[in-house]
Each structure stands twice: as structure tokens, then as C-alpha cells.
């Protein structure tokens, strides 16, 4: 027992020391928090976003010098491989990927058209799958294995009015993750999702709540037995899934929702 305890302290299973982690949506919200916390756990961070000033500010807050920022529209799929290749050249093999970039679209079905789905799916789903494909390539990924985390949502398994595009995009991540987990297991690459409910102080939550009346906002909060979540709740889950502590976890949708989906 004493040997086991000493072993845990000396070999922190949640450590990300020496791991290079790619994170989309790193300019703000969950992606930014993941970058900060993964960095605290020893990871080298490859932060991708659209807002240069925010990424530069993030870079100054990351530990160590094994960090990179890329100002990139991830829906320009043809440009993604050169980004991944550049990161590999500068930092070495890639160990993990968090796809946190995503857009929100609160629109009743009657107001939707195919362009809305195409725009949302481009960022929320296809860009994530494309980056996962590239990062998992033998020439870029750590031969010892890796871990991919898609930030989905409880909306991918429940549903809500005026969120057809958003719910189906998140549902696509959850379904695609399972297929990917099976396909990449031989390469020791694990693939999982995290599904949060409403996270305070994120653009997605602010945009969705902006459409509600005061009564609607109270009702939305009441759906969460433990109240709204924080970005750190999701980042901590990512650390777990990226770390060796989750060695035997793949094909899972980790729900971190304050009890939202328990009702």
C-alpha cells in the first residue's frame, strides 16, 4: 500500500509532461481554459484560433517555451496539413488533440436552410474530423499513442427547440468519435467526447441565453441541479482523457453536465 502511494506521487497519472496537445477554439472559452490547464500539467500547447490578439495573450500565459499559436480558419481544410506539419517540425510528435472550436446557431427549423447546416457542420464537425485524421497520421502522431477529445454537448444526446443544427452537429461528433475510436485503437490512439451542459462565461452560452426572456433564463438554470458549469470543469475532464490515467478509455462520451441529463 505504501509503495503504491509513493508511486502515485512520483508518477502522477494525470501528468501531461512532455505531451504536445493541439487545441482548436483556443482563443476563448473552453478551448482557452483547456490550453491553460493542460499547460499547467506540463503539456506543450499548439493553440489554434481565429483571433490573433487573444492567441498572443494566451501564449504569454502558457508555461514553458514549447508552445505555438496559429491564427487559422479551420474550415479552410486544404491549409490544415501544413499547420500540423509545421507544429510537428517545431515541437516533435503530437500526443493529443482537443477540438473545442464550434459555433452556435439558435434558429427554429422553419427559418433554417441548407447553408446553416453547412456552415455549422464545417466548423463543429468536419474541421474536427479533418484535424483528427491529420494528427493521427503515422508521420505526425507519437508512435506510443495519443488521445483525441471532441468537445460535444449534452445537446448531442438530448435536444432543444431551435437547436436542430447545433444538436445534430454535436450528435455527429459523438457518433463519429465511436467509429474513430475503433479504427485508431490499433495505433493506440484513444478517441472520446466530453459533453457539457451550459458553461457560464462562454460565447455559446451567452449567445443561446440572449434569446431567452428572464423567465426563460431562470428555467434554463433550473435544468442544472448543480448550477451552470465552468470552463475548468471541462478542462479537467480533458486532462483526464488526455493523460495516461485514461489509458483504457476510448469510444466514450464523458458527460460533464451538473446533472442536466439525469432528469
Amino acid at each position: 500500500m505504501i509503495n503504491f502511494h509513493n508511486s502515485i506521487i512520483m508518477n502522477n497519472p494525470f501528468s501531461l509532461k512532455g505531451k504536445n496537445i493541439v487545441i482548436t477554439g483556443a482563443s476563448s472559452g473552453i478551448g482557452r481554459q483547456c490550453a491553460l490547464q493542460c499547460s499547467e500539467m506540463g503539456a506543450g500547447i499548439i493553440a489554434i484560433g481565429r483571433r490573433e490578439e487573444k492567441l498572443k495573450k494566451l501564449l504569454l500565459q502558457l508555461r514553458g517555451s514549447n508552445n505555438l499559436i496559429y491564427v487559422q480558419d479551420i474550415t479552410k481544410y486544404d491549409e490544415l496539413e501544413s499547420l500540423v506539419s509545421d507544429a510537428f517540425t517545431k515541437l516533435g510528435p503530437l500526443d493529443g488533440f482537443i477540438h473545442s472550436a464550434g459555433i452556435e446557431l439558435t434558429m427554429p427549423l422553419v427559418t433554417m436552410n441548407h447553408r446553416h447546416y453547412e456552415t455549422l457542420f464545417a466548423t463543429d464537425v468536419i474541421a474536427g474530423f479533418e484535424l483528427a485524421r491529420l494528427i493521427s497520421k503515422k508521420k505526425y502522431v507519437n508512435p506510443a499513442g495519443g488521445s483525441i477529445v471532441f468537445i460535444a454537448s449534452v445537446m448531442g444526446i438530448t435536444g432543444d427547440i431551435a437547436l436542430t443544427a447545433y444538436c445534430s452537429g454535436k450528435g455527429a461528433l459523438i457518433a463519429g468519435m465511436k467509429a474513430m475510436a475503433l479504427e485508431l485503437a490499433p495505433k493506440k490512439i484513444r478517441v472520446n467526447c466530453i459533453s457539457p451542459a451550459y458553461i457560464e462565461d462562454t460565447e455559446v452560452t451567452e449567445n443561446t441565453l440572449a434569446y431567452l426572456s428572464e423567465e426563460g433564463k431562470k428555467e434554463r438554470l433550473a435544468r442544472h441541479p448543480l448550477g451552470y458549469g465552468r470552463t475548468t470543469d471541462v478542462a479537467t475532464g480533458c486532462i483526464y482523457l488526455l493523460s495516461d490515467a485514461a489509458r483504457w478509455i476510448t469510444g466514450t462520451n464523458l458527460i460533464i453536465d451538473g446533472g442536466y441529463s439525469a432528469k
Binding site: M107, I161, Y211, L212
Partner: peptide, 19 residues
């Protein structure tokens, strides 16, 4: 309410609020 907000946004590029 949501339908009107979306309709106005799409056709006039104006984001009206619930209030």
C-alpha cells in the same frame, strides 16, 4: 419570438433582442 429574430437577422442583418 426566435423565428422573428432569425427572420429579421437573415433579411436585414439586424439582431433584435427578445426584450
Amino acid at each position: 419570438t426566435l423565428a422573428i429574430i432569425a427572420y429579421v437577422d437573415e433579411n436585414f442583418e439586424k439582431r433584435v433582442k427578445v426584450a
